[in-house]
Structure formats: structure tokens, C-alpha cells
Design a protein around this nucleic acid. Sequence first.
DNA 1: ATACGTCCTGCGAGTCACTTGCAATAGTCG
DNA 2: CGACTATTGCAAGTGACTCGCAGGACGTAT
Lengths: 149, 149
Amino acid sequence: MTRTARTPDLQFRTLEDVTAVLRRHGGRLSMPRRLVLERLFAAEAPLSAEAIAVSVRLELTSVYRNLERLEQLGAVRHVHLGHGPGRYALVGRGAREYLVCESCDRVIAVERQRLAGVRAAIRDGFGFEADFGHFAILGLCADCAVPDA
Amino acid sequence: MTRTARTPDLQFRTLEDVTAVLRRHGGRLSMPRRLVLERLFAAEAPLSAEAIAVSVRLELTSVYRNLERLEQLGAVRHVHLGHGPGRYALVGRGAREYLVCESCDRVIAVERQRLAGVRAAIRDGFGFEADFGHFAILGLCADCAVPDA
DNA sequence: ATACGTCCTGCGAGTCACTTGCAATAGTCG
DNA sequence: CGACTATTGCAAGTGACTCGCAGGACGTAT
């Protein structure tokens, strides 16, 4: 079903890195593809396909196909931050995992490593290896949890 | 009294309980509504609207509207177990939270209480109150994590 | 038992987030 | 430079809902 290649890949840090892998797999660096990649490299947070399409003025279809291709290569990952469209981000600089507030929609992105303790607790309790890089942790952020207002 | 919104409501344990609350809110127990509720009371796991519609032979529209109404009353909750349609379950007998394997699609439902430690770890690390009853924990189950097959 | 008000229902159409088919176009490699 | 074929744009399709509307059914009052 899903083929997740769990590699903290250091081979996707620059546009050239991605291009190299792309070509090794018989892919090309078309104009739309370059635009999508540049937009992703410029992004601080995961973007929806729609957002990318609008900002680089491309067909949505093309954006989706490019994201799909890039995800197959392991250069991009998509994450679900709650209801709403999926979001895409480069894998390049270290894996991120997300916590999102259901009340104020705040997205807290953290280095995967920072959730090691949480992951361990889940592993200990259920022998289950959690991955919050695909499905975020939903709940209430500190501000919205209101200790006892 | 209770200090959080997360009340393990004891007022929705039977069809009569739900009906009472329904009426208190100006609602009615129509035939389709009763069928949806009975189907949910008979279910062991969360069901998709589609699954309910098919099994009780109702219009999908009607099922969605009923689930929505029931969710407003607090009798039903929907949960996202990964890609695919949302699933609905009665809140009645204690809150459940879910872990789902991205490889074999296995769904592990646990009493909310059993994730207290995990929730605490997240609270300690990020001041964030996680809720896995709406967005499940995705990852790999013990069988699929394969220590070294 | 009946009339009444209005909550619900079925049916049809619409929306959102993609996904797929196809002919035309454009990267790459030789 | 030219062929080979990965990609693109456009259009249509799909899955999961969501909405509008007119008629029908539930519950309350009579």
C-alpha cells in the first residue's frame, strides 16, 4: 500500500541534489518542476498544492504530478495537519513532525528528534512505532488549553 | 465538577439516552435516525458514513446529516484513521483513541486512559494537550515495524 | 384521534481535493 | 541537431462530502 522509505536523506539539500537523483531515475527538470522545487526550497512551512500552484502560476494538475514524482524519489513528503488540504514539504533539512491546535490552528513544527520520548512511550506501551510526520498530533496548544480559566 | 470539556458522557449509553437528549434539543427520532443509531450501537469499531448507509439502506445524505446532528449533541464523534473516509462512533461507553498501522492498516483502539503517559510526555515537552480521538496516531504496528525480519 | 408546526428526508446539484486520459510539447542524451 | 519519451495543459472523472428545496413524517397540543 504505502511505500515509505524512511531515509533521513542528506541527498536532497539543494536543487542540484534533487535534480541529480531525478535524472538518475530517468526524470527531467522541466520548467514547472523547477518552479515547484524552488517554491518548496523557499518555504518555511509545508504548503498545499493549491498554494504552490497560485504562487508560481502553474496548473494545479502539474503541481500535483510533480509533488507525486518528488515524493516517490523521497525528496518531498506530504503531511495532514487536520481538516483541509494536504501539505507538502521538502525532506531535505531534517525530518519534521507537527503538533496542531484544533482551536487556533497553530502549527508547531518540531525536529523529529524532539518527539523521541513520546515515540518511546508509545513503543513501550503498544510496540507501535509512531510517525507524526505524516499525520500530525492534533489537540490544544498551551494557550488554548486554558489550565483553569 | 468536571474541569475539562472532555466529559466521558454517561448520558449516551442507550438509544433512550440519546433520544432524551435529542428531544431536549428539539430533535426527533425519525426512522432513518433510529437506524443510524442502532447501527452505531451495534458496531465494535468506528464506521464510515458510506458503510452505515449501505448496511441500513439509507441515503448517504441522510446519514451524513444525522451523524452531524448527533455529533453536535455530543453523542457521536468522528475520527480520521489515515487516508480514506472519516469514521463515526458513539461516545457512549468511554472515549477511545486510535493507533493505525500505515503498512497493514490495522486499527488499534485503546481506552483514552491508556494514552495518559503519552499525553503527559507531550504536555511536558510542549505544553500541548494531545487528542488522538479525532486524529489517530499513524505509524507501524509491532508486526510491521520488523525489528530484523 | 386530529390538526399543526416544523424537523427531516429524498433528490439533485454543487464543492473541494485531488486523479486520470490524451494529444501536443519540450527536456535529454547520443 | 534529432530522436526518444518524460511532462505538460486541458478536460473530464472520482471520492467524500455539503447545500437547497419541496414534500413528508414526528411530536405536541387540542
